[in-house]
Simulated scan of single mutants.
Amino acid sequence: MDAVLVGIALIDVFFNVHTAESLRLAFALVGAFALLLRRRMPLLTFVLTLPSVVLSDAIFAALAALYTLASLSRRRVLLGACALAFTISDMTSLPSPSLDLSSTATLITLGYTAATAAAPVFLGQLVQTRRDLSLRLAEISEARDHERLLTTQTVLAKERAQLAREMHDVVSHQVSLIAVRAGALQVGTRDAETRQAAATIRRLSVQTLDELRHMVSVLRASGGRPAELTPQPSLAELQRLVDGSGIEAELHTDLPPETLPDGLPPTVQRAIYRTVQEALTNVRKHAPGATATVRIHREADTVHVTITNTTPTRPALPLPSAHYGLVSLRQRAELLGGTVTSGPTADGGYELRLELPADNSA
């Protein structure tokens, strides 16, 4: 695309600038080849194309640069100033400028020139809006999928909890009665064969009760918190969490690698992991386009965790939220004897801080 635009700009120069006019030809060629920089330095590219507009009728390069700047920049005052600069440059003819605003023809020409300058600005802003809308739709779709997954997990958890209650209240009770009756029969009968059968029934009933208690405990755990059936996270998985967070994030820690799985109590490791997980999720939801930095270090008997994000580059989406994330983090930290604080930073970002005692074994 850049090569095509440069080619069209060169054709524009060929038809509108005479080869004998070396100064105008030089500026026109600079403006045409400057389009190769339009994606990396759009403002500089537009500035480099302005002399060609002032000195000649080769204006395609400037219009292309103005469109690129409008599609990448959100500063509308800057875009208005650039459109005005193009209009004035196109109306001026150096080295002998003649701009008579009292003439009707001049005013009509000024109107057409201003419209010509406004067209690439509006088109670039339209492309930028369409791009932002596509990103928002993708984020909303992803948020809905995640919400659907959470809803499914909640329904399954409720069903497991209900099943656990039924097993505890009905099945366990009846098996207990069978074991009691079998024990009474074993003691009260004089027939050896009946006593042996009663002992077998009682033994199998006791084994069944033990298995039922284990199944009820598993179902209750999954009903209260679905993730507890899987291995609990530790600091060894923290780098994977940061890399898979879906945002540009970095992890800095002064903890030796060998201490990550075993150097801190499991409760402290889980609290750190969940805090980083919640903070990165909040950055992704409430600060689109921001980058995050996770820092973990230990001072004496205290572990300090700081998650900082920069200013968002796009407006935040109105995603569904129960606003319980930070509350849960504070409650978890208080149970372990630590604290969680959060607040905006001076540069417009946000920072979440966690402090926990390193020797906590709760």
Rank of each mutant, 00 (worst) to 15 (best):
A3I: 00
I8Y: 12
V13R: 07
F15K: 00
F15T: 05
F15M: 04
V17P: 03
H18G: 09
H18R: 13
F27S: 08
A28Y: 03
A28E: 06
A32K: 00
F33I: 04
L37V: 04
R39M: 02
L44W: 04
T45P: 09
L48E: 02
S52N: 06
D57G: 15
D57V: 11
A58H: 07
I59R: 13
F60T: 14
A61Q: 00
A61N: 00
A62H: 04
A62P: 11
A62F: 09
L63F: 08
L63N: 08
S71Q: 10
R75W: 08
V77N: 08
V77L: 14
L78V: 14
G80D: 07
A83Y: 06
L84G: 12
F86A: 05
D90Q: 11
T92Y: 01
S93I: 10
P95L: 06
S96L: 12
S98E: 13
L101T: 15
S102N: 09
A105D: 11
T106P: 04
T106I: 09
G111L: 09
A114R: 07
A118P: 02
A119W: 14
P120S: 11
L123E: 04
G124D: 05
Q128F: 12
R131N: 15
L133N: 11
L135E: 13
L135G: 09
E147I: 07
V155K: 07
L156N: 10
A157G: 02
E159F: 11
A161R: 07
H173I: 05
Q174R: 13
G183K: 07
G188S: 15
G188Q: 13
R190S: 15
D191S: 10
E193I: 02
Q196E: 14
T200Q: 15
L204I: 01
S205M: 13
V206Q: 14
L209D: 12
L212C: 04
H214K: 14
M215S: 13
M215C: 12
V218W: 04
L219A: 10
L219P: 11
R220W: 00
R220D: 05
A221I: 10
S222C: 08
G223C: 02
L229M: 07
Q232I: 08
P233Q: 03
V242H: 01
D243Y: 01
G246K: 03
T253Y: 02
P257N: 08
P257H: 02
G263V: 02
L264I: 03
P265H: 14
P266D: 13
P266F: 08
T267D: 03
R270C: 12
Y273Q: 07
Q277R: 09
E278H: 09
T281R: 12
V283I: 06
R284E: 09
R284W: 07
H286D: 03
A292P: 08
H297F: 15
H297G: 14
E299P: 00
D301A: 15
V305C: 09
I307G: 08
I307H: 04
N309F: 10
T310M: 06
A316I: 01
A316L: 00
P318Y: 05
L319V: 11
S321V: 10
A322H: 13
A322F: 10
R332T: 14
R332F: 01
G348Y: 00
G349N: 04
L354C: 05
L356F: 06
L356V: 01
P357L: 06
A358W: 01
N360I: 05
